[in-house]
């Protein structure tokens, strides 16, 4: 299958930082090195023949229990971008290690990144460098741990008042 314009452009512009690309079921995906995420997103946003002006979604995945096949890096931050002008989407993924789950913040590019990154920190404990106010958003300050990590138990309740069960 022919590679889409976005992936081709990305390869041309950032040959060193693209780890892998694929288009499973038509979803263009580029796995990139985490240090270049902001540059890549800025390029995608500002390049006139791509103009990805929407940060549709930002989330993370914990691959701790993935054994089909196992991953070397534990986390992956996933960005979904969309362009209104050309009506195309792309998914950017950046692997992070367990020892240092840190990535640069996208807040200078999109205002919505602020809350999305806070959610990511809340749920996965991924730190975003350059984020203005990285604190919990869905859970409360007293909560310990990050529930969407695979090693956090489903019923790991931490009540503020009342019994645990």
């Amino acid at each position: 299958m022919e590679e889409s314009l976005t992936l081709k452009k990305l390869r041309e512009r950032f040959p060193a930082s693209i780890i892998d690309t694929h288009s499973f079921r038509g979803d263009d995906t580029a796995v990139v090195k985490r240090v270049d995420v902001v540059d890549i997103c800025r390029f995608l946003k500002e390049s006139p023949d791509l103009s990805y002006n929407f940060l549709m979604d930002l989330t993370a995945v914990d691959y701790l229990q993935m054994n089909n096949p196992p991953k070397t890096e534990r986390f992956e931050v996933v960005y979904h971008l969309y362009s209104i002008k050309y009506n195309h989407r792309v998914r950017i993924k950046a692997p992070l290690t367990e020892a240092d789950p840190t990535i640069d913040s996208l807040t200078p590019l999109w205002a919505v990144a602020n809350w999305l990154e806070r959610e990511c920190w809340d749920m996965f404990g991924i730190r975003f460098d350059g984020h203005p106010d990285l604190k919990r958003i869905l859970l409360y300050e007293q909560f310990e741990g990050h529930p969407l990590r695979k090693d956090y138990p489903l019923t790991g309740r931490q009540p503020l008042i009342g019994p645990k069960n």
């Binding site: 979604d57 229990q65 602020n114």
Partner: peptide
């Protein structure tokens, strides 16, 4: 393995302050 929902409200709420 992972099910993520992109909630439209969440993004809109992030702009409510503005």
């Amino acid at each position: 393995y992972r099910l993520r929902c992109r909630p439209p409200c969440f993004m809109i709420m992030s702009g409510v302050s503005r």
